[in-house]
Design a protein around this nucleic acid. Sequence first.
DNA 1: CCGCGGGCCTGCGCGC
DNA 2: TGCGCGCAGGCCCGCG
Length: 275
Amino acid sequence: MPELPEVETTKRGLEPHLNQQRIDAVEVYRRDLRWPIPDEFEEVLTGNWFVGFKRIGKYLIMDLSNGVSIIAHLGMSGTFRVEHTVPEILRKHDHVVIVLESGAALIYRDPRRFGFLLLEESRSIRSHPRIKVMGPDPFDSESFTAEYLLDSLRKKKSQIKPILLDQHLVAGIGNIYASEALFTAGIRPDRLALSLSLHELQKLVISIRSVLQLAINSGGSTLRDFTGGDGKPGYFQHAFQVYGREGGLCVGCGQAVDKFVMAGRATYCCYTCQS
DNA sequence: CCGCGGGCCTGCGCGC
DNA sequence: TGCGCGCAGGCCCGCG
């Protein structure tokens, strides 16, 4: 599920409910996620409180008062939700319940268990092996620029779309927003990365930002439902231009939207509007 | 070093 | 209605 906008939406949804809240109890029902939940997880959390929240690419970082941070990744199907009270009956695939001093509960659910929850000293987050290799954030206008892309793509042999999924290049784009951003930029997904001009890359940078921002904005509209509901960010309401719309009419030209597989991933585009 | 394909899991929607 | 199949928004790893 979650690409950058969904993780950002999750962060914004959780923060007001969790910030400065003490953790009174932790229950882990399944530890075998993508990586196992550390044995010391419950002990490290209990009695401390949340002091900060940030997103790095698709990672959600939750800082605790004892100088330890939770590094969370939602994988394909992970969600966090806050319930007003600890539910008497958990939903299937609720793997972790964190009880707060307010009586509310933070619950991690992940049917496919591709996500993970790890612990790391807060001051070492940026040097964590999984974090330090991440490319720039798409919204970082200092480091994520057309010039940066031009330089990075110069030695790439493959097509642009799968490259956008490489978190080492830019952190946070997934399969949906790769297709969407390329459509907005008017660039075909199968263009060789090194063939893109500086001008096209400028359009791509702007398109990536606008597509992600739009999705964040639409997710934000349902943040109020974060407690009591299922915590699902509002991105389902987001109208995709091409993703999942094969055979439908292109919003730009009225021709049919195409679907094909690239590097094993579904890819959508309009061959009239993208060149 | 790079790019690709398989694997990890469960759920869902589709066609028969 | 039931069943089997293919597919799903991420990431790591091994292979060539």
